[in-house]
């Protein structure tokens, strides 16, 4: 565990909590892509199946349970409790265009051709692109609430910190996971355009709105 990995995990946790609180406090999930949240619930479910087979540490187990629990709670709030506020008309990204190729790729490129390992690989590839329905929704409506942009910022920051963590682990531990690194780089690149808008607009007190 190094400082980049830890702050990455905490940044990820912050993103998840910010989103839950935003929906809970405003009693509304307007502007939030339910599809991205379902994809993240799938990511955590398929990745953390090793909760049943391997014990790594109390930290590892607790964080996994918190991530899974929060992601299901978020999906529940969007599709059940505050369903009336869900903006389904703007959440039109075709998720099968992500899930099917990602599923195929995880069968073809993995560390080990075993069920748990293929599901882990699937989760890594899926996480890299799971935010696309949310970014697509923002590009469609042309704007995002400031609190939603904070959520996206922490979610992107988490992966950027993980990249530094992997450089660190490569130099100091000789650790190198090509699948996680390539997917992590792709995932971080997807946030670059958003990071630019976040720094140039949101941090200067303006609402994130895209030119028509």
């Amino acid at each position: 565990m190094n400082i980049f990995r830890l702050t990455g995990d905490l940044s990820h946790l912050a993103a998840i909590i910010i989103l839950l609180l935003k929906i809970w406090k405003s009693r509304s999930c307007a502007g939030i892509s339910g599809k991205s949240q379902i994809l993240f619930a799938m990511v955590f479910t398929t990745r953390y199946l090793d909760l049943l087979t391997a014990y790594i540490s109390l930290y590892n187990t607790s964080m996994k349970i918190i991530y899974i629990g929060c992601s299901y709670a978020t999906v529940y709030l969007i599709y059940a409790k505050f369903k009336a506020t869900y903006d389904g008309n703007h959440d039109t990204f075709r998720v099968e265009f992500l899930v099917v190729p990602v599923g195929g790729l995880s069968f073809l490129v993995n560390h080990d051709f075993s069920p748990l390992e293929i599901l882990w690989t699937f989760s890594i590839y899926l996480e890299a692109v799971a935010i696309l329905p949310q970014l697509f929704m923002i590009s469609k409506t042309g704007e995002a609430e400031t609190i939603t942009t904070h959520y996206l910022f922490f979610l992107g920051l988490y992966r950027a910190l993980y990249l530094i963590n992997w450089v660190w682990r490569f130099y100091f531990e000789g650790f190198f996971d090509m699948i996680a690194i390539v997917a992590g780089v792709v995932q971080t690149i997807l946030y670059c355009d958003f990071f630019y808008l976040y720094v140039t607009k949101v941090l200067k007190g303006k609402k994130l709105s895209l030119p028509a």
Partner: peptide, 10 residues
């Protein structure tokens, strides 16, 4: 290998 891989990251 036949041993399951240990993924210690989240």
């Amino acid at each position: 290998g036949t041993e399951p891989l240990n993924h210690d990251e989240l």
